[in-house]
Design a protein around this nucleic acid. Structure first.
Length: 569
RNA sequence: CGGGACGUGGCUCAGUCUGGUAGAGCACAGCGUUCGGGACGCUGGGGCCGGAGGUUCAAAUCCUCUCGUCCCGACCA
């Protein structure tokens, strides 16, 4: 490709709308442009990278025995009613009516459609296992799209769905997919980590996320410093720490103290001169329309998912002011476990079971209790692991310590089980003639997000440093002076030579000063840059520079193609 | 959905407080000089200041509403 003919609008200045580095660089490098919030167009260069990721995915999915299909984006509400998700999916599911008044939606995912196909076509265990995938645009009406391609409303996703005869067969498929995912992200040149994850709205029972390590990631991962344990913080179980609070042998008197206007943990602990791990906060929650009190140590965070699972409820949210008042008799900020309304379910984090002489709200305005102890002052509630794991907690898997890292979720694989096949009737006859629901798995990759994640991980102050496997071009030839016949001829020769070798090469034949060409080459992140310039005239040499390392080698003009190919392959 | 910020040539922004004929840099077009890290000079084109309403002799500027964009927020007990 000749640069002079390429639609590649690069930006010298950073667009005001971009916050994270991948977003800035995608815009500056002319790869994407925004149409509206969460909606992006891919320009030629961006599309090239996207296609490269797609190609890697296709190769690895095909290798793993999956077959490509293409499913509709617009889906009828009937299917979603069958799976129960028409009611449960939430506002992210964009619903609308067509001209005939038929309720429809834009597919945020395709379990329903694929299950519908399989239930219509698959009859026998002889047809299984079956694994179908597509690379398709999804739409999720996100509350807050952000960070460019990282969290758009419309985005490109590879999703695969597997159907097996039983759990054991699913386990095998799952392992094959797990390995395929590792290969995909390795080939994309990413520093990633598979982590144990929550299954979220997909349902099902086992799941791994593939996280690209990056401090701009939206997800927090609990990693063990001594073993290879890694899990999403949403999921990571907390092993109860051995009685770190039990130094105090004396039980103090329970005392009501005035704490005017002191609501937050920070305010109360500072006012009373105590540390946050001596305070028990009482969170009034609404669990499926019923209020519940959750007790958590002041320096800990409630884990919604854990509490939801413990209570066996679908939704869990903070209660509104009015509910808090009616349940506790006090405004928000002064709730405590003593004297809550009768019959209120109380769940306490296991870590506060060993606390003594702690502080709680007094359930009246501007007052807290100090010196609170279990039994004597308040009834012993149900204890459970309902908090978020934190830095320094023990590893659930070994004796190591947990540290928290950030990651970008680029892939997610689930064992779905029979959630969809059972509700939608995707069954087959097994070898004894029994009707069985297919056991499903589903496997997603955010394709655009993978490109963004690669940029987050591979850049410097001058621009992108693409891994060769997903770079839009492998080589850029910077022709320093297009009006110099010797240089132009040499650049053209090298260009044709590389093309003949199947190398994806961009010839910068623009009428620009050298500095502009170098800056753009760096910004675009093309792995190799060949400079045809003054050395050609002096020594018949050209330079080959690696974008990643900055290393430059000079070679004779006639060696250029051979040498470049050697470095690339 | 709440809170905050911002909408002024294609881009980055000044001008708004204190109303009085719309600016800069970059980009673009032409000419000249330059030519290995985002050159310089001269000339030129391009904006009804997001939109609607209002106040005023006069509105980018003040008021009201609206649309859009970005950021923060379930963690406060």
């Amino acid at each position: 490709m000749k640069y002079s003919r390429l639609f590649l609008p690069t930006l010298k200045e950073v667009p005001a709308e971009a916050e994270v580095i991948s977003h800035k660089l995608l815009l500056r490098a002319g790869m994407i442009r925004k149409l509206a919030s969460g909606l992006y167009s891919y320009l030629p260069l961006g599309l090239k990278s996207l296609r490269k990721v797609e190609k890697i995915i296709r190769e690895e999915m095909d290798r793993a025995g999956a077959q490509e299909v293409l499913l509709p984006i617009v889906q009828p509400s009937e299917l979603w009613r069958e799976s129960g998700r028409w009611e449960h999916y939430g506002k992210e599911l964009l619903r609308f009516e067509d001209r005939h008044g038929r309720a429809s939606c834009l597919g945020p995912t395709h379990e329903e459609v694929i299950t519908d196909i399989v239930r219509k076509e698959v009859r026998s265990y002889r047809d299984l296992p079956l694994n179908l995938y597509q690379i398709q645009t999804k739409f999720r009406d996100e509350i807050r799209p952000r960070f460019g391609l990282m969290r758009g409303r419309e985005f490109i996703m590879k999703d695969a769905y597997s159907f097996d005869v039983d759990d054991e067969a699913l386990e095998k498929t799952y392992q094959v997919m797990y390995k395929a995912y590792c290969r995909i992200f390795e080939r994309c040149g990413l520093d990633f980590r598979p982590v144990e994850a929550d299954t979220g709205s997909m349902g099902g029972h086992a799941s791994h996320e593939f996280m690209v390590m990056s401090n701009t990631g939206e997800d927090q991962i609990a990693c063990c410093t001594s073993c290879n344990y890694a899990a999403n913080v949403e999921l990571a179980p907390v092993i109860q720490s051995p009685h770190h609070q039990n130094a105090e042998s004396v039980n103090h008197q329970i005392t009501k103290v005035s704490t005017p206007g002191k609501r937050s943990v920070k305010e109360v602990t500072e006012f009373l001169g105590i540390s946050a791990d001596h305070l028990v906060k009482t969170l009034i929650m609404i669990a499926d329309d019923r209020p519940v009190a959750a007790l958590i140590r002041g320096d800990h965070e409630l884990n919604n998912i854990k509490l939801k699972r413990f209570l066996g409820v679908e939704t869990l949210n903070f209660a509104d002011e009015a509910t808090v008042r009616s349940v506790t008799g006090a405004p928000v900020g002064f709730s405590g476990p003593a004297g809550l309304s009768k019959g209120l379910k109380v769940v306490a984090d296991q870590d506060i079971s060993t606390l003594k002489n702690f502080v709680t709200g007094a359930n009246e305005p501007d007052a807290h209790f100090t010196g609170v102890n279990w039994n004597r002052d308040i009834p012993v509630p149900e204890f459970a692991d309902i908090r978020v794991i934190t830095e320094g907690d023990p590893c659930p898997n070994c004796k190591g310590k947990i540290e928290l890292k950030r990651g970008i979720e680029v892939g997610h694989i689930f064992k779905l089980g029979t959630k969809y096949s059972a509700s939608m009737g995707a069954t087959f006859l097994d070898d004894t003639g029994e009707k069985q629901p297919a056991v499903m798995g589903c496997y997603g990759i955010g394709v655009g997000r993978t490109v963004a994640a690669a940029i987050e991980q591979n850049h410097d102050e001058n621009g992108i440093i693409f891994p060769i496997s997903i770079a839009p071009f492998e080589v850029i030839i910077s022709l320093v002076n297009i009006n110099d016949n010797l240089m132009s001829k040499a650049a053209e020769d090298i260009y044709n030579g590389l093309l003949a070798q199947g190398v994806e090469v961009l010839l910068d034949d623009r009428e620009e000063r050298p500095g502009v060409k170098f800056k753009d080459a760096d910004l675009l992140g093309i792995p190799l840059r060949i400079v045809v310039g003054k050395r050609l005239k002096e020594k018949d040499e050209i330079e080959i520079r690696s974008r990643g390392t900055g290393n430059i080698i000079s070679v004779k003009k006639n060696e250029a193609v051979k040498k470049a190919v050697e470095i690339l392959r």
